[in-house]
Structure formats: C-alpha cells, structure tokens
Simulated scan of single mutants.
Amino acid sequence: MKFYLSSNFLMKGAPIFSIMVHCFYGVDSFQEQIHPLNEKYPFQLFLNSVIHNGMCNDTAITDFDFIPSQNVVFRRSTNVGKDIGGKFVLLDTYLRLGIKTKYIVFIHDKKSPHLVNGSKWFDNLIRIVEPTLVDEIINSFERNNKIGIIASRGSVMKEASSPGYFESNNGRLLSQLQKKYDVYPIDLAYVAGTMFWVRSDIITKFFQRFHPLEIRASLEEGNILDNEAGTITHSWERLLSWIVTSQGYHIKEV
C-alpha cells in the first residue's frame, strides 16, 4: 500500500478534526457533505480507495480541488476487512505522519444491498458531517468530557449477551478479541455502521499499542456480510466502539 499527499498538505491554521473516508464505490456521496465544511472548519481529509481487480477506482486528488486550503491524504488498499480494514489503513497513516487533531470522524460509502432500506440507513449515518450538526457535535464534546463517541441517532445498538457469553454469531470471536486486547466495556452498546466522531487521543492511544495494520491482516477478504457465521471484521465493528467505552466514556446520539 502507498499513500499520496496533495500538494497543499501543509495548511495554515490548526485543524480541529480529521475526516477519515473509506471509499469502495466512489466519492460522489461524500463531496456534497464535505464541500460546505471547507468554508467554516479547519480539518484534514484522509481517503482510502479500494483496488478492484488490480485497478483503482477513479478517486483522485482532483476530486477534492474544492478543498485547496486543507490537508488531503490519499491511500490505496485491497478489499480486506471492508470499511473496518480501510479505517485501519487510515489510522496507520495518521499515526505514521504524526498528525494530531482533537477529533477523528469515520465515514465510508455504503450501499447495504442486503437491506431493504439501505439508502436511508446510509443517509442517516452520514448526517454526522452535515454542517448544521457539526457545531452541535463539537459543543457536546466540549461541554461533557465523558462523551467519547458521537454518532447519528438510531445508529447505536447493543450486543446481545447472557451471563458469561455473547448470543450473536460473532460471540466466540468477540470473547477472544476482548481477552487479546483487554477491551471490557460495562455497556455493550456500539455504533452499527461504524460512522462516528471520536476523541482522537482515546483511539490513537490504543492503536499505538496495537498496530492497526497488524490487526487488519487478521480480517477477512472480500464483501462479507454480517449475517454470515461470525467474522473478525464484524466483531471489530463492535470493538471500535468498545475501545472507547471500556475506558469509561460513553456514546451520544445526535
């Protein structure tokens, strides 16, 4: 995997947050939401594009020419771990470049063909980068230092469990991963769809200890579905939230 820096990588002013985008289909669904943010907020954009059959999709630096004053970092990767694997690629980049912003925002393109209301699900998840909500999100973090994650309303679910075990197909793997990474939240809530804001110091501290690309190497390849027998990839959909909540922080919906 390689990463590419735009020519305007060095920006004026301190970025408040980093937006990390995993892109499997294309960037059209993100430009409309991200474009207005450029007018108000200093931020850094990280984008990972998936290589299909040896070819990368048409994502290019020119797709983000509307952010001339911002940092833009591009990565290319194979389809491993779906959007979870893409997030690990971008977290690796963030750490390697020594970038520090107060918050990280995880988003990705999502079609969910296995869901009847897949497009509505995506539209709800992506609300977290709408300019009308960003002020509310940042203010919520500033007012309450125990909020670790902020996600769109209706996206927070709770892993089913009984005393001593998880009830889902991912149960066995979740127990193994909890033990390996010492992630034991009291509340088993997590952000389904893995699009959320998070305090960067919480999540980067974990991945400085456990390297994101080493974890990515354990994930499954291809377009696996959550209704299959348990997968490490979908187990990490839970653990990404639990990394934060296991340290005493909670999740807020907006």
Rank of each mutant, 00 (worst) to 15 (best):
N8K: 13
G13S: 03
I16D: 09
S18R: 02
I19K: 01
I19V: 15
V21Y: 10
H22A: 13
F24S: 09
G26T: 02
D28G: 08
D28E: 15
S29C: 14
E32N: 12
E32L: 11
E32I: 11
P36V: 04
N38Y: 12
Y41M: 08
Q44F: 04
L45D: 04
F46G: 08
L47D: 02
L47C: 15
N48T: 12
S49T: 13
V50C: 12
H52V: 12
D63R: 05
D63G: 04
D65C: 09
Q70Y: 06
F74R: 06
R76C: 07
N79P: 02
K82H: 10
K87G: 04
V89P: 01
R96Y: 03
I99K: 08
K100A: 07
K100T: 08
T101K: 00
K102V: 00
V105T: 00
F106W: 01
F106E: 00
F106S: 00
K110N: 08
L115M: 12
V116Y: 10
V116W: 06
G118C: 02
K120A: 14
D123N: 15
N124P: 00
L125Y: 03
E130I: 01
E130A: 05
P131V: 11
P131N: 07
F141H: 02
E142Y: 08
R143P: 01
N144W: 03
I147Y: 04
I150A: 03
A151V: 03
A151E: 01
A151H: 02
S152Y: 02
A160M: 13
Y165M: 10
G171C: 09
L173H: 10
L174P: 08
S175L: 14
L177V: 14
Q178S: 15
K179Y: 10
K179G: 05
K180V: 10
K180W: 04
Y181D: 09
D182S: 14
D182A: 13
I186Y: 13
D187C: 13
M195N: 04
I202A: 09
R209A: 14
R209M: 15
R209Y: 14
P212T: 07
I215H: 08
I215F: 10
R216H: 07
A217V: 07
I224E: 13
L225P: 02
G230Q: 08
T233E: 09
W236F: 14
E237Q: 10
E237A: 07
R238S: 10
L239Q: 07
T245W: 05
Y249Q: 04
H250C: 09
I251M: 04
